[in-house]
Design a binder for these strands. Structure first.
Lengths: 222, 222
DNA sequence: ATTCGTCCGTAACGAACGTTACGGTTCTGC
DNA sequence: GCAGAACCGTAACGTTCGTTACGGACGAAT
């Protein structure tokens, strides 16, 4: 863990290299486990020699792929200007929906499976990179929102990290582990929107200041 | 999904076979990824031919191992007699602590990693077995507790499944994904006890009936 | 004691795959 | 144009590992 996302990676990728990494991602989603260097070279219309020249070895290729995917997940900013309870709720719902969309995407599932399988061995922590760009990155982005909410008297909590972890649990629940284990859990736009709203309202019920209007929040459904 | 846990497995294992499966578990925890048939035979002091005679092939061995481990996780019963708010809270805390202990154990982590890696390929759903004996088994065991709490007027929710998933999220939060990805998150007895209590009180704050005494519940800490 | 079945230890086969090497082709700068 | 680099396609090498085969040891039953 050095500067931003556990090592920036070193070199800015050429478009050709990015295309190769996109091919890796596509293969990971389609073929899952059978991600062989030959398959990557075939899919990307490049030679294995080029792969080894660019990325060193198989781990280097996978690491570069994880970083490349992480670079796209960076989503919209959620600044806390004009903070009232409605804006805060909207921000939290946006965060939740965004996060649910990410973890339920086939790319994220394939990537996490790969990183988890790699964490079993000891070599080259893909798991650390995925964590830094996933779980911890979203935590860092949400923290200012939570603290702005507290400053504005809308939220009440002692530790922002603990509060975030509660929010994280309410949003994700069993979704990620079920998807990782192959459960055909449907996570379309409708389910994501519903879950994001429910989780946010539950979070506000736990950490919202009582005086912050409850009239537009239609009482936790379930 | 047939009777209890996605296929009972067929035959009751001999003690020798159980010892072999224990060796597999130990190897999975220690060596992680490098779980080779030769290593299992060496560790268990048996021949590879015996492994293949008993378990068919590598997948059969892994499946038997998952089932064998699942058979021990069966924990205490939580019947809902004499239900008052204190007993309910105690039951929920027990459930939460038990679950946290399971998912943070090295064995469970190694097993889930293996099943997730297997879910990437399509063959022989270890993921389904792990889900059936983990996430879904605990859901089935907790459901009667929740419904008894509702019958007794202590809890309020529409759907027991949804309520359980909320509890699941509050308990597990980011623990499982972090451990699976190799994060050195400390989860000792102290952390587990604290998390179980916090999650239970949060759940009761969301779904508890207001008239059920709040005096012994020391206001959600964070 | 002999025979049969079960199991151990080890060797061998074959496929998959990471890695390297090589000849031919395309692109770039002078 | 031309030299050199970068790159493609493919072949080859070595290792790992799942799977099978073989010979011998041990125990139970006849």
């Amino acid at each position: 863990m050095s500067s931003s996302t556990t090592d920036p990676g070193g070199d800015p990728l050429t478009t050709r290299q990015q295309a190769v990494l996109d091919a890796v991602l596509a293969l990971m989603v389609e073929e899952g486990d059978r991600l062989t260097m030959s398959a990557v070279a075939r899919r990307a219309n490049c030679s294995k020699e080029t792969l080894y020249k660019w990325f060193g070895d198989r781990d280097g290729l996978l690491t570069a792929t994880v970083r490349w995917q992480a670079a796209r997940v960076r989503a919209g900013r959620y600044d806390g200007q004009r903070l009232d309870i409605a804006a805060l709720r909207e921000s939290l719902i946006d965060f939740a929906a965004n996060w649910l969309g990410v973890i339920s995407s086939p790319t994220s599932i394939a990537l996490n499976r790969l990183a988890i399988g790699h964490a079993a061995s000891r070599k080259s922590n893909l798991g650390g990179i995925v964590l830094a760009n996933g779980r911890f990155a979203i935590g860092e982005r949400l923290r200012p929102v939570l603290e702005a909410g507290r400053e504005a008297g809308l939220l009440s909590f002692d530790d922002a990290e603990t509060a975030f972890r509660t929010f994280f649990g309410l949003v994700g629940r069993d979704v990620q582990i079920r998807l990782l284990l192959g459960d055909p859990l449907p996570m379309g736009r409708a389910e994501i929107a519903r879950d994001a709203e429910r989780a946010t309202d539950q979070f506000l019920a736990l950490h919202g200041r009582p005086e912050s209007s409850t009239e537009d929040r239609p009482a936790p459904k379930a």
